[in-house]
Structure formats: structure tokens, C-alpha cells
Design a protein around this nucleic acid. Structure first.
Lengths: 202, 202
DNA sequence: GTTTTTATTGAGCGGCTGTTCAATATAAAA
DNA sequence: TTTTATATTGAACAGCCGCTCAATAAAAAC
């Protein structure tokens, strides 16, 4: 078996510990000592591998974003038709993986953090652009030039459902969120086909 | 002229200063010294009137919520028909007043804070319930028993548009948000009247 | 077996924080 | 005027924070 150095192991453990600490505290107001202790190492080691608290935070954010991206990618690989690919995106955005309590807390906190940190805002913007681009690509053949507005609507609905979920106490409520977005998509598609909009030009 | 004590004046100044500080910092990680200095008084005075930092934060949150409630109330007083009252609610929720940068920051921060503070969560729940109740009351005569789902959709859309706005850089984007919600409402109403749903029973 | 690299610790430093409190100035009441 | 209540300050305190660093243990390289 290949003996690897400790670095990747510790990095991952510290990132997980940071996300867990953010959830426990409900904000970015967490201490390196707390994170290190959750990861089972000393404060010094956290600095050794990440240099500063800020860099550890950014690394955690990047980790969450990359995990979400992979969920989307894997979902899209199993769907061919545009309408089904839309569902795949919704499923990835509101999937159980994204609703793990720690993950929800971290996303919320990062959204807020993006207001003060340029780096955080840049990272989130990438996520927003990619999601928008994915939605547009699938919507265009279905609704023509109404795609931009509908993509914005879907994105806002997803974010709104997500943030509202975080205020509820209980566990469930997943399926309702999906349904809400799916109905929205179907309504908009139906309206386009029966309404005054251009019935596509391809 | 009626000579009032300093208390109400200082309380309001400190609350405004707190909201301003939250905006500047982008989080609740602010110091009493900073708040007091923005209000033009000493740290000691802030404690004299609010007792603790926590109570000052909660007072600021309450202030924002009450101001929003009044916007809704005043909007509803000028509209009679259900469909127009819905527009009034949307207008209050996505009005310029709510998009003042300081207000946006404060709302976001409070949403996150609600995850750790029971008091904050309770306050936000009241806002959510009242908004939902208002929407349901106007939706029922228009869409019958589809009202709950549509109310949830409208609420999520509003919150999503709000949170997404906070990540944009520029000033504008107000009108687009309104339009998105109004279209959603019209689509849902149209679908109800032409679709398979119960056409109301009143 | 010696040297060098990696892994890890925890004490310590300077600095900032919420809060307390004694002191004082101002205004109201007597 | 004297007394009392209100308004206001800023120094002081105890405590926590991010971060540095010298010390050491273990592993790899030689």
C-alpha cells in the first residue's frame, strides 16, 4: 500500500473540523483552537498546514463548492434531454447532500462572508455563473429568449428554498422544495409553448 | 416644546450605529467600541442603555423587523383587491427601503444569527409567519387550495432574489426582481383558472 | 548510524474584547 | 442652595485570540 504523507489527511480533517465548528457556532466567529481540537491536533499544526485562519476558511469554502460541482456534474451525466437535465440540476442543488445541517450552515455563513471578503465573493460568483450557464444551456431549446429570466427565477427559487429551510426546525421538507421548482419550470415551459413568446427558431 | 430625556435619542442612535457597523464589517463580529464611536458616545454609555452587546443586537433586529412590518401595513392600506394586495406585499418586500445596503447586510447577518440564537430565530419566525399569513389571505380567493404552495413559492422567490441581490455589485436590479415575482403570481393564477384545480368554492 | 526532512506540540506574546466601576458633569427637585 | 437623579466618561480587568517559535519526536534519506 502506498504510504502518503500526513499533509492531505490533516488538511481534510481540518477542513471538516472547520465546517463542523462553523455549524456549531453558527458563524465564522470560531477559533483555530476549537477547529484543531475537533480535528484532534494542536493549534500549531493548523497554522503549519494552512498558514492562517483565513486561508483555512477559504479552503473550506472551496471544498464545499467543489463537492457541489461534482454533484451537478454526476447528475448531468445521467440525463440527456434538456428537461431532464434541468431536473438533474435541481436535484443536485436541493439534494440531501446539500441539506446536511453542517453544509447548510456553512453555505449561509459563506454567503454572508462574501459581503466582506473579495476572495469569498469571487468564489461564490463562479458558482452562480456556472449554475446560470448550465440552466441557460438547457432552457434555450425549451423557451427560446425567455431563458435568461427563467434561469434567474429558478436560481432565486432554489436559493430561497434553501435559506428558508435553514430556519425550519425539523428534518424533512426536501420533496416540497423539489416540487416547487419543478412546477415552476413546467409552468414556464407550458406558457412558452402556448403563449405569445417565440416558439423557438431552431 | 417637550423636553425629553436622552434615553430614546441615544437608543436610536446606537441602533443605527450598530446596523451601520454590521454593514461595514459584514458580520456580527463588531465591537461595542466601534458602535459607540459611530454613535458619537463612549463604550460605557452603550452598556448603560442596553446592558450588553447581545441586547443591543437584538434591539437592532427588532427595529429592522418593525420597520419592515410598517412598510407592509402601509402598502396594504392602499390596495383593496386581492391581486393588488399581493403586489403591495411584493413591493414592500423588495422595495428600495429594504435594499439599502446597510439593511441588506443586517438582514443577511440576522438570518445567519438565527441559527445560533433562539431569540433571533423566534423573531424571524414571526416575520415568516406573518408574511405567509398575509399571502395566504390574498391568495385563497384567487387560487383556492393551491394557496399554501404558491405562498411558499412567492416567499422563497422573494428571499432568493434578496439574497442574490446582495452578491451583485452595482446598484440597480430592483425592477427585475419585482417582475420575476409578479410573473410568477400571474402564471399561477392563470394556471388555476384554466387548469384542473378547484376553481374556488366561495 | 548519521543526517536531514517531516510532523507535532504547547508555552508565550501582543493585542483586542465585553464588561465593570468609580468619578464627574449636568440637569431637576427640594 | 442643597440634594437627588440623570448622563457620560474612560481607565482598568480578566480573558480570549491569532500567530510565532523553539523544542522534540518520528521517519526518510544517505
Amino acid at each position: 500500500m502506498p504510504k502518503v504523507g500526513m499533509e492531505p489527511i490533516r488538511r481534510k480533517a481540518l477542513i471538516s473540523a472547520a465546517i463542523s465548528a462553523i455549524h456549531a457556532r453558527g458563524s465564522l466567529d470560531i477559533t483555530i483552537r476549537d477547529i484543531a481540537s475537533r480535528a484532534g491536533v494542536s493549534q500549531g499544526l493548523a497554522h503549519h498546514y494552512f498558514g492562517s485562519k483565513d486561508r483555512l476558511i477559504v479552503a473550506s469554502m472551496r471544498y464545499l463548492l467543489s463537492q457541489f460541482s461534482e454533484q451537478v456534474r454526476s447528475g448531468l451525466q445521467q440525463a440527456r434531454a434538456p428537461r431532464q437535465r434541468l431536473s438533474a440540476i435541481v436535484r443536485a442543488s436541493l439534494g440531501e447532500e446539500q441539506f446536511r445541517p453542517e453544509v447548510v450552515s456553512a453555505w449561509l455563513v459563506f454567503y454572508v462572508h462574501a459581503q466582506e471578503s473579495d476572495q469569498a465573493r469571487q468564489l461564490l460568483s463562479i458558482y452562480l455563473r456556472r449554475l446560470r450557464s448550465n440552466l441557460l444551456h438547457e432552457l434555450r431549446p425549451l423557451v427560446g429568449d425567455r431563458a435568461p429570466a427563467i434561469a434567474e427565477g429558478i436560481g432565486a427559487l432554489i436559493d430561497g428554498i434553501y435559506i428558508r429551510h435553514s430556519l425550519r426546525s425539523g428534518p424533512g421538507h426536501f420533496r416540497d422544495g423539489h416540487r416547487l421548482v419543478e412546477d415552476y419550470i413546467d409552468l414556464q415551459i407550458g406558457f412558452t409553448q402556448a403563449g405569445s413568446g417565440s416558439v423557438s427558431d431552431a
